[in-house]
Amino acid sequence: MSSVTHHIPDAMLAAYAAGNLPHAFAVAVASHISLCSKCRVALEAHQAVGGAVLDESYSVAVSSNLKGDIFAQLDASFSPEPVYERRGIYPGPVLEVMKGREPRWKKLGMGVRQDILSADANGSVRLLYIPAGQAVPDHSHNGLELTLVLQGSFSDETGRFGVGDLEIADEEVEHTPVADFGEACICLAATDARLRFSAFIPRLLQPMFRI
């Protein structure tokens, strides 16, 4: 998409190419790459460099048991490749996590809904539906949050994000995302830690909503 203006930082793209991102972040990155030709070209450059390094590396003989352990670790850390087919607004990597089903929206309040696609000790991937003009409660972060816009747009203290844009918020970012007027904003959000809400009610409901 030529209209994408918020891209993946080069260091994160390199980590993705090396298979070193947690699954939740890898899904968000793969989804962005499937929508962004600029980051797709950058990923191919990283992969080419990685391939050249491997070609120049010396091989070392290992036992069959050690080889099995190495391949098991590689499988555990493998990042999903970008899938370029889409269904409606959902990129291929999102469809893979959804396993072909439709979103199962659960209400969070004020018209905001979510569908938790995957969650474990290392992070979560969820879809967020935010009605036009509605705000997500003010919050900061205990870790990293990647938010990819799939429909509509939202704005916060850091700027405006439209379809294909990826916002990366860390512990230093406190923001109040607001869906812009027009169609509802649907995002893919990936986190590796719970959010830190400023207001009491969101903090009270946080364990129930697993945010």
Rank of each mutant, 00 (worst) to 15 (best):
A18C: 08
G19C: 03
N20W: 11
L21F: 08
P22Y: 02
F25E: 11
V27E: 06
H32V: 00
H32S: 05
I33D: 01
I33Y: 07
C36V: 00
S37N: 11
S37W: 04
S37K: 13
K38F: 09
K38A: 08
C39E: 13
R40P: 00
V41S: 15
L43P: 08
A45H: 15
H46D: 10
H46M: 05
H46L: 01
Q47W: 07
Q47D: 08
Q47I: 06
Q47P: 04
V49W: 11
G50H: 07
G51I: 01
V53I: 11
V53K: 14
L54M: 07
L54F: 07
D55N: 08
D55T: 13
S59C: 00
V62M: 12
S63L: 07
S63Q: 14
S64F: 09
S64L: 13
N65Q: 14
L66I: 10
L66V: 12
L66D: 14
L66F: 11
K67Y: 12
F71P: 01
A72E: 12
Q73D: 15
L74S: 11
D75V: 06
D75P: 03
A76R: 12
S77R: 15
S77Y: 15
P80K: 12
P82S: 03
P82V: 04
P82M: 11
V83A: 14
Y84Q: 01
E85T: 12
R86T: 10
R86I: 03
G88C: 12
G88V: 10
G88E: 12
G88F: 06
Y90K: 06
P91C: 00
G92F: 09
P93R: 09
P93W: 09
V94I: 15
E96T: 05
K99N: 15
K99C: 05
K99T: 03
R101A: 05
E102Q: 13
W105P: 05
L108D: 04
G109A: 03
G109Y: 08
M110P: 01
G111I: 04
R113E: 15
Q114H: 14
D115V: 02
I116L: 10
I116C: 01
S118C: 02
S118K: 01
D120K: 10
A121C: 07
N122H: 05
N122E: 12
G123K: 13
R126Q: 14
I130A: 02
I130C: 01
I130E: 02
P131N: 03
P131T: 09
G133Q: 03
Q134P: 00
Q134C: 08
A135E: 10
V136G: 01
H141N: 09
H141R: 11
H141G: 13
N142R: 14
N142H: 11
